[in-house]
Design a protein around this nucleic acid. Structure first.
Lengths: 290, 290, 290, 290
DNA sequence: TATGAATGAGCATTCATTCAT
DNA sequence: CATGAATGAATGCTCATTCAT
């Protein structure tokens, strides 16, 4: 990621946290970031896009961390959950700016951001669910989604006291405490005939409800930016970026020509030249397409 | 409440729910409410005041309901909690507009509203704590505040699914379910040596050390009136009254300058010239100030 | 001065002359100046600031001219006065817009502008007084201020006929005429025992007891800096500095609350804890205050 | 004059003096006057009409006083002038509200008011001129208008110090002082060959330049009000008021039918039934008509 | 690339005037 | 006659976005 872009994002995080999105002007952001207004619009097409970038910045960090924990085979499921809780506590305590933004919940008028946050929440809760399943075994099965949400809800409540009353969080103690409460709940549920409340499959069937064109475009942009930032600036990088632009242009049309998009996708894959990061991103972006 | 005022509040609730405070213009509100812009400012001094009115409108309703339940001696504590949960579910289901607003959490830039919401949250959780104490008896004591918050957090998570995914809530089922989880947690806590995380007394010592600015202002006014009424009408009385006015003016600001308030307090004490009545009043008024 | 800024000022002069400040909208001004509304606020923070700029624009011109005349040793005092009268006539005839604005006297609601005009009037009259003193010698002494004002008043009356009835001014003839009237008056006064009416020293003792807010603020700042630099950096230093800031903030307001300033002064004295340096500085700063 | 109307005018004088016309709202005025907004519009057709009424109220008072002095044969011309100066000082000192309004000079955007003020100034200065003529005899003749204006200008300058610096006016001393200055000037002028600057006849030929329809209508309204207020409420009063209304209606038309106006005027004179006040007013109103 | 002056649509708020009661 | 709730055009000001340099 470009240096200036990062500066801008960090300034935005600080300001969106202190005040909020609407009460922070682009001028405020560029002043704090020490860049010009022109430069801002060189990196972001709009203030809204910055907001999206800010969220991506954080969520990506969290998602990566959760994936790392999960693939760490030296941890037990219980340890993984505790670890994840502690991680979230650290984030909140270490980055109040963003946190206070995050606590503002789904407030951001912007639909893309709303969807991103909902997606991210769901991802996190599904992650929790996986660990819970592994921890308590198949007996918890139908309740695993409820449990993940109960745990999530309990955790957030403590965050509230940290933000609002500055009540300190001892993340290790809190993680253990909540894990114990999870145990109480899990064994309580398993020992009594209980009907679950939520079913993950009902809420997010097949893990991905129909994406809107808008969110797809946002993702396409972020893939493009990722390619730009994460490849050596060679000829093929440039070509890939241009190809992504062409795809975005096409997708923006009322009736995009699917054959162009498919063709360009194919071309991009060939340009990727086996680079697994790029291929993964592209695959994720295009697989849901119809 | 005036007819038009209500129309305006209801339009605002709808629009603040759909978009949010900042993206809703006064014109939008009055157009939907079917009143003129002039009429708006006849009922509210500012857009901000409307926001406050909207929140009061809901919070007052909830507070009243909780008080009614509590004083209903024909209900057991368990029934009271279940009742309260069901009530909150009903509100949310019946008034998605407001709810989606509420879910925006403590997002509202406005400090008054933020304080109102925090106050209200605290009130609700303290109410829950009372019922929990009665329900599980003195053994739960040090844990009662944690329990109330855990219950609260779990409940909110289900609201999230209702709002975001329109997942239906069967309020009776959910209330029973959460009550059972509360049991699981409560008995789990009581059966294992457990350190509590939050102490109500730390957060809001003596039930509400966190005096609201509003009540403080009322007290300040009454002190001013007292001074006016109980001193000989000398030059210094007049100066004291003016000083109180200046303090009140300063305190009314969004971000009062503490140094002015301290300085003026000091000045008042010097003007009091040893008069014990005045000094006592002033000390009581200012001792909680930081 | 920036090109656009000048365009705006000139448009404003025209419009403020035609109608007046209140009935001229910012839109009117920018339309005439041929700039956008945004550009206006790029150059002026508010409409009020423009008004101030407009007055400064003219007054500065006059002040500079008067200084030039005065230091021109090739002119006799009589010639200087005649020159100044002619200059004022030229200004008025050349710039009816501004003149008609100026004739509106101290009407402009704005306190800053009012003070500026009064200051400027006083400066002009004091300038006249100097020349009169030189012209008629020490015998006129106690009457010089009255004379300057009489001359001033007579002159203005002719401006009135120019503005209202477009009665042409022959500036040379008028200057000579008024100079003769001044002679009549001066010799009349000196030849008869006469008590003066106005004493400059009563109205602006020591040439400017009527300290402007601006200079007072400068002094306040320097006292603050002195405190900061000359005390041990203790808690009370910090509090004193904050108190000075609060006072300055208050003084900056259109209508400072005197009670706050008095109160804070009292507080500062108590914080000074007998330190003679601080007390002296504070006393000097505040003793002129009413 | 109606009671409420007076209350409103007095409230307006106070407020227009404190702030100014534009920054005083109708609401402010009716609140201070203790009448309803509806009542305001019952007495005045617009805020502007009130402004006119306020000025008339004062100017009429002054005009009447000047007439009284003039016809008081026990006073010498010198005494008359001194008397008039003293009177003006009294007015200013006694009624700062209005004065501060008056000092705002010809600021009032409103053309009718501007014309009224100019008319009034001219009347006053012509009055002065008369006395000066009588005082200094035919020798002053061509200079009398200049002299009247010089005196006027000098006087106003002292008012300035009263208003701005609250410099007290000793009206007797000031009147004598200015009279002496007038003597200095008059004898100075008469003893030296001097060309006058202003000629009254050039400026206001035949005492009345073309009246605008607007000012005529204002006068018509005030005549109507005067009739309403100053006659017994008999049948004929009502008829006269209705007749005035009819005339005003006619005059408001693009092309008023002169025959109607003449006829109604004739009718009014007959209704006046010899009442000299009414006849004078009507004559004054209609004599300039073409 | 980078800048920041320029744009103008949009906003909250005010207030003279009207009119149903 | 009297009221004051209602109206809506008009105003000062902000700020996301553009673009000449």
């Amino acid at each position: 990621m470009n240096d200036k872009k990062l500066q801008i994002i960090q300034a935005a995080i600080k300001l969106f946290g202190d005040r909020d999105y609407h009460t922070t002007s682009v001028q405020d952001i560029v002043s704090l970031a020490g860049v010009s207004k022109g430069a801002f619009y060189l990196h972001f097409h709009s203030k809204e896009e910055l907001l999206i970038a800010v969220f991506s910045y954080y969520m990506d960090g969290q998602s990566i961390y959760l994936k790392e924990i999960q693939s760490n085979s030296s941890l037990t499921p219980r340890e993984k959950i505790i670890n994840a809780i502690q991680f979230q506590c650290q984030v909140i305590m270490g980055d109040q700016d963003f946190l206070s933004m995050h606590m503002k919940g789904i407030a951001f008028m912007n639909n893309t951001v709303k969807e991103m946050m909902i997606d991210h929440s769901m991802q996190t809760v599904r992650w929790m669910e996986q660990q819970i399943l592994e921890l308590y075994g198949p007996e918890i099965a139908v309740h695993s989604f409820d449990c993940a949400n109960l745990l999530n809800g309990m955790l957030k409540e403590y965050f509230f006291y940290f933000i609002v009353y500055a009540h300190p969080i001892n993340s290790q103690q809190l993680a253990e405490y909540l894990m114990n409460r999870m145990d109480d709940i899990a064994y309580g549920i398993m020992n009594k005939p209980t009907s679950p409340i939520l079913y993950a499959t009902l809420i997010c069937p097949e893990q991905s409800q129909a994406i809107t064109k808008e969110t797809w475009l946002q993702k396409a942009h972020s893939v493009k930016d990722w390619i730009e930032a994460n490849t050596d600036s060679t000829k093929s990088t440039e070509t890939m970026v241009q190809s992504m632009d062409a795809i975005i242009q096409e997708a923006l049309k009322e009736q995009p020509n699917q054959i162009i998009i498919k063709g360009m996708y194919n071309y991009l894959i060939s340009l990727a030249n086996g680079n697994p990061g790029i291929i993964e991103k592209l695959t994720l972006l295009f697989e849901g397409q119809k």
